[in-house]
């Protein structure tokens, strides 16, 4: 047993909890979950990192970007799934946008913040959003295509290191 009372380190502020989200999916409902947890973790002063990969990266492309990529396949991919936090589709009941439209109507009625607003608050609260280098390469997404304030791109090994050091990590 360590004599806690005589240890000056114990009297210092406790180490912040670490939280990692692997943001893999690009659907509206999953993006929403990611943004709610990321912003709240930031508010709870947890050291929060969101690793953005595969379809998740589409959410972090600027809303006004319509097409990303260099070759026709990459361009086609972005054309078929419009990038940007404001253009997410539901995995079920999308109905050509009717589903998301109703979701946003309900969100407004019940004062629920949209994913994009939560994303802004999360950034304001110091949450780190880091893109996956491999996804950027594969989809031809340039750093300039992404929203402001993203971290330097990282790889799977760094993501795993973050997860093993974290107090909690989620794959969404």
């Amino acid at each position: 047993m360590t004599p806690a009372a005589s240890n000056p380190a114990v009297d210092e502020a406790p180490k912040p909890k670490k939280f990692v989200i692997i943001c893999y999916s690009g659907e509206l409902e999953k993006t929403w979950a990611t943004m709610i947890l990321a912003s709240t973790a930031g508010a709870m002063e947890m050291e929060t990192t969101v690793f953005v990969t595969f379809w998740g990266l589409q959410t972090f492309v600027k809303d006004r970007k319509r097409i990303t990529g260099e070759n026709w396949m990459q361009k086609m991919m972005s054309f078929m799934q419009r990038p940007g936090a404001s253009h997410r589709k539901l995995s079920k009941m999308n109905f050509m946008g009717m589903g998301p439209w109703m979701m946003f109507k309900l969100a407004k009625k019940y004062n629920v913040s949209k994913p994009k607003e939560l994303l802004e608050m999360a950034k304001e609260m110091g949450v780190h959003f880091v893109p996956c280098q491999m996804t950027m390469d594969m989809f031809g997404i340039k750093p300039d295509d992404l929203i402001e304030g993203m971290g330097e791109p990282i790889g799977a090994a760094t993501a795993l290191q973050l997860m093993t050091e974290a107090d909690a990590s989620l794959f969404i």
Partner: peptide
């Protein structure tokens, strides 16, 4: 008032 989770927490933090 009227705000849903997690907004009360976020507003308080701000």
């Amino acid at each position: 008032s009227g705000l849903s989770c997690p907004l009360p927490i976020l507003r308080a933090t701000q």
